[in-house]
Design a protein around this nucleic acid. Sequence first.
DNA 1: CTTGAATGTTAGATACTCTCACATATGTTA
DNA 2: TAACATATGTGAGAGTATCTAACATTCAAG
Lengths: 168, 168
Amino acid sequence: MSDACRVAGVSTAAPYRHFADREEMLLEVVLAGMDRFYEALESAHQPHPRGSLAAITALGHAYVDFAAREPGVFRLMFGLTQRQGQNEVVRDRGMRVYGVLLHQIAAHFGHASIDDHVQERAFPLWTFVHGLSFLLIDEKTDQLNLEVARTQVVADATRRLLGTALAP
Amino acid sequence: MSDACRVAGVSTAAPYRHFADREEMLLEVVLAGMDRFYEALESAHQPHPRGSLAAITALGHAYVDFAAREPGVFRLMFGLTQRQGQNEVVRDRGMRVYGVLLHQIAAHFGHASIDDHVQERAFPLWTFVHGLSFLLIDEKTDQLNLEVARTQVVADATRRLLGTALAP
DNA sequence: CTTGAATGTTAGATACTCTCACATATGTTA
DNA sequence: TAACATATGTGAGAGTATCTAACATTCAAG
């Protein structure tokens, strides 16, 4: 935070005119990040037909890409909102992001609402791309000589997972 | 770290007799955690036949259970070793942990070594349980009213994923 | 022109990481 | 046994971070 003040060219006391404490500042960073995350996901599926395999695959790519592009914010989004989970704004914003996937899955199955079936198919997909994102930004694939992970393995796994997750 | 010294009943300068800096102290915590993680995974598959579906499923459960039992260490293990990734000891210890899964997968397919096919089947499973672990300890399932996530959804998703990931 | 809100600064309280000089205990060697 | 080396700990202090409080500046509104 001190570094941020230095970069901004203000004293370290300045931000306390706008936020109660450090946590609130980080929360604002997280909220702004969630908005960018939402936009990234929305843009990703736009070019593809609603609920198509292409649209859902594009969401997965956009998810991992965002994590790779903003690893700090990505980590913060999930680590900080752990404690901020009761915060109404955070919950709504988070649900809005996850909703992008839910709606595509619902469309895929031709369901009008986010019912249990949709939830059950969407959650494993989220879990998969979320885990992949963390393993990539934590550089586990490099460390364990899984250079193959970035490409063929992931592509195959995704196809397999989508095949079953989206089967009727 | 100051709290730890207070709990230990020593001055904050004491640990610097044993470690170069804070990072080295945390690294030791991580290494000890990785050992417990390894033991947990080993114990989990022991009761089941090598390479059986039961053994592999037990590994997944043990993985998520460890994350839930020691969320701080779990987060640290992956967050800290990101920077410590070039550390030889960390890499070996990490490979030892992941090796538990690799060997079970190899046994499942009757392969004598950890070949590309084994890697390709193991990695998606890791990704899945890893993502699930983070979503659970970050309480995302609670926050988004995914109370169903803990039980039925996860069970179904796991079955589906295992079905394809372990298919010949 | 005055006032009040918004925004910023300096100085200081408190806490944390880390260093250094100094103390003590324990085991080894002459 | 005496002297020494090693391991371990402490207190004081440097440097930095979060956060508070008193004081200054800008600027729009009446």
